[in-house]
């Protein structure tokens, strides 16, 4: 891999994971995956968390493959790999903790507007 490709690989893993998770999120809400069970969680949650974990594994594998020293020539790819890994972890962690398809309007209707 060329220097530029190695440097961009980490952020690229984040970009792909982010796009896949966002697309699966939209598709899953539209197709009703939230109501389909896949073991202890919904099919939607399983698809999202599974994609996220795959992205994290890819980012971690890239980080472990890169040499630990060698000036900027090795440092930039490592920084890129760390960027990708941290960004994947931080921007997509909501797949673990938030409701998947509720909107603000739905919440407002459920909690604040008396029926």
């Amino acid at each position: 891999m060329s220097f530029l490709a190695r440097s961009l690989a980490g952020p690229m893993i984040w970009a792909v994971t982010f796009s896949v998770v966002y697309a699966l999120h939209g598709a899953g809400c539209a197709l009703g995956w939230d109501g389909v069970s896949a073991g202890p969680v919904s099919l939607h949650r399983a698809a999202l968390v599974g994609s996220w974990i795959l992205g994290l594994i890819a980012g971690l594998a890239l980080l472990l493959r890169l040499p630990a020293s060698g000036g900027l020539h090795a440092g930039l790819p490592r920084a890129g790999a760390w960027t990708g890994l941290v960004a994947t972890l931080f921007t997509l962690f909501p797949v673990l903790v938030t409701s998947s398809c509720d909107t603000a309007r739905a919440l407002a209707v459920n909690f604040f507007i008396p029926v």
Partner: peptide, 21 residues
């Protein structure tokens, strides 16, 4: 515009993270 909470959280987290670089 009425986007689901999870998607809001993705983009909110990314918007905060961009402050780091």
């Amino acid at each position: 515009v009425g986007i689901p909470h999870m998607a809001l959280a993705f983009f909110s987290a990314a918007s905060v993270l961009v402050a780091v670089p």
